[in-house]
């Protein structure tokens, strides 16, 4: 166990030096999900470094020891068929490593696919995050507000993102809070996140979606529940209501700055059902497609 941590420390310091002492985004987690993923990554880097070092060591030894220039001209290499013990070790050790990593991997899968650790008891804040070329629309159904290209979230609260897309497959990703998940046109996917600290984070679409993909980003601001509530109240007082007409304009391909509305598009343009191809969703998708063709 000590060995493992020693290796991890070495790797971490190498990584830190390489990046000018500022931790890489992935290794600077601000929420439980991202932390679990960062730990998995560091663990696998550690174990894999050992594998790499062993292979390198054997290779260097062999190349130095058995090169032709070091041997007499009449040396005839022996015929070697293979040895069951040697080969058993070459299978056995990788099997053990892979089995251990599989165990960790399966465990992590269930962790990142459920409510974040420490937040299981809470009622999560549900945010519908939908993408259109090349923007993100964030609908807060409980608060009854909607934003474009920026996301305000309370810290220390479970967040449940409902993802879908008006167009190509996109991928919703806030690296410092946790890994990404696809947003698609014909179903909703769910991503569980939480922020432990307040601060500003980068969020983006990570999946290639055409010409405006590179700029398909959004800002994430995490703040205390109190500040968040104040912000919601302020939006309700100052922002314009989101009408169907405005929303359809927003969907047209292009880039928009940050925008804020009261009301959400969920009322007049309900998201796709989980149940693929159900008759319920088709009318809305029909209108969206027609809009897409207008320009």
């Amino acid at each position: 166990m000590k060995m493992k941590w020693a290796v991890l420390t070495v790797i971490l310091s190498i990584v830190a030096v390489l990046t000018g002492c500022e931790p890489l985004t992935i290794f600077d987690p601000k929420g439980p999900q991202a932390e679990r993923q960062a730990n998995d990554i560091l663990l696998s880097i550690g174990i894999m470094s050992v594998v790499v070092i062993v292979v390198f060591a054997i290779l260097i030894y062999v190349l130095v020891k058995f090169r032709a220039s070091k041997q007499s001209d009449d040396y005839e290499p022996p015929h070697m068929e293979g040895n069951p013990w040697v080969e058993a070790i070459c299978v056995g050790i990788p099997v053990i490593i892979v089995a251990y990593l599989s165990f960790v991997s399966v465990q992590s899968n269930y962790i990142v696919e459920s409510a974040p650790k420490g937040y299981e008891e809470q009622e999560p804040l549900v945010v519908y995050a939908s993408s259109s070329n090349w923007k993100w629309h964030f609908s807060y159904p409980e608060e009854n507000i909607e934003t474009v290209n920026y996301l305000y979230i309370p810290t220390d609260r479970a967040l449940e993102f409902k993802l879908y897309s008006y167009g190509p497959i996109t991928s919703f990703w806030i690296p410092q809070l946790g890994g990404q998940k696809y947003a698609m046109a014909d179903m909703i996917t769910t991503l569980h996140l939480a922020a432990d600290e307040s601060g500003e984070f980068m969020g983006r679409n990570a999946n290639f979606s055409g010409k405006g993909f590179a700029e398909n980003t959004f800002n994430v601001t995490a703040m205390s529940q109190k500040d968040f509530d104040e912000w919601v109240d302020e939006v309700k007082e100052t922002a314009d209501p989101l009408t169907e007409e405005t929303f359809n304009k927003l969907l047209k391909p292009g880039h928009l700055g940050q925008m804020t509305f009261t009301g959400t598009h969920l009322e007049f343009a309900p998201p796709p059902e989980h149940d693929h191809g159900s008759s319920h969703t088709e009318p809305t998708e029909e209108t969206d497609t027609h809009d897409g063709h207008e320009h």
Binding site: I26, A34, R36, Q37, A38, D40, I41, S44, I45, M48, V51, V52, V98, L101, V104, S105, S108, N109, I111, V112, S171, W173, P175, G178, G179, Q180, K181, A206, N207, F208
Partner: peptide
Amino acid sequence: VTGVMLAMSAADYQYHNT
């Protein structure tokens, strides 16, 4: 070995598309 790292699906949420 980086392939093995990518195969850890929960961690892949961070590697994917990068």
